[in-house]
Simulated scan of single mutants.
Amino acid sequence: MAAQHELSFDDEVKAQLQPLLKGGNQLLLSYDDGVGPYSHHGLVALQVSFQFVIVGQDADVSDYEETLPSNLGPVRYKGYSGRFLGHKLHASFNTLMHAIKLSDEGEQIDDNVAVIVDDTATK
């Protein structure tokens, strides 16, 4: 059986995301490839780009069929985007750049992960 992906957030990133995860809101780790309602750029040919998307409890998350455990609760992602993800993922806040960095046990995956709050999310 293959090892499952898991994600940990450092304290700074948790402080940013936790208040947004209220009222049943869900957290997505969205591969920004232009597929699905929460990915608009489709930069896959140019670079690997991810974003954290906060969506409402009843939002359409059918494109995000996989779930990974995290210290903020379950995080949904597009199954095929797992090929870009290691098994032990970590999201940390880069204070110098004021950006969230996503890395795994071997390398940096994305040095500027945006946080998007969808209209479906409870504000």
Rank of each mutant, 00 (worst) to 15 (best):
M1P: 14
A3I: 15
A3G: 12
Q4G: 00
Q4R: 13
Q4M: 09
Q4P: 03
E6F: 07
L7Y: 03
L7E: 01
F9W: 09
D10A: 01
D10G: 02
D11L: 04
E12K: 14
V13P: 04
A15L: 10
Q16T: 10
P19D: 04
L20E: 08
G24C: 09
N25Y: 09
N25W: 11
N25H: 08
Q26I: 12
L27V: 07
L28D: 02
L28Y: 10
L28A: 02
D32I: 13
D33I: 05
G34W: 14
G34F: 12
G36R: 09
P37K: 15
P37W: 10
Y38S: 03
Y38N: 05
Y38R: 07
Y38H: 10
S39R: 12
S39V: 11
S39E: 13
H41D: 15
H41Y: 15
G42V: 08
G42A: 04
L43Q: 09
L43D: 09
V44Y: 15
A45R: 15
L46M: 13
L46F: 14
Q47H: 11
Q47S: 10
S49L: 13
S49F: 13
F50L: 06
Q51M: 10
Q51H: 13
I54C: 00
I54G: 00
I54P: 00
I54S: 00
G56Q: 04
Q57L: 07
D58H: 11
V61H: 09
S62D: 12
S62H: 12
S62R: 14
D63T: 10
D63M: 12
D63Q: 14
Y64L: 06
Y64S: 03
Y64D: 00
E65A: 14
T67E: 07
P69Q: 10
S70P: 05
S70I: 03
S70T: 04
N71V: 11
G73L: 04
G73S: 02
P74A: 05
P74I: 04
P74Q: 09
V75R: 04
R76F: 14
R76S: 14
Y77S: 06
K78Q: 15
K78V: 15
G79Y: 09
G82C: 06
G82W: 11
F84A: 01
L85T: 02
G86L: 03
K88T: 03
L89I: 03
L89W: 06
H90I: 03
A91P: 14
A91E: 06
A91G: 05
S92Q: 08
F93K: 05
N94D: 15
L96M: 02
L96A: 07
M97H: 04
M97A: 07
H98N: 12
A99H: 04
K101I: 13
K101R: 13
K101G: 00
L102G: 01
S103G: 06
D104I: 02
E105Q: 14
G106H: 15
G106M: 11
E107D: 11
N112D: 14
N112A: 05
V113C: 00
V113D: 00
A114Q: 12
V115F: 01
D118S: 14
D118Q: 07
D119V: 08
T120E: 01
A121V: 07
A121N: 00
T122A: 03
K123W: 09
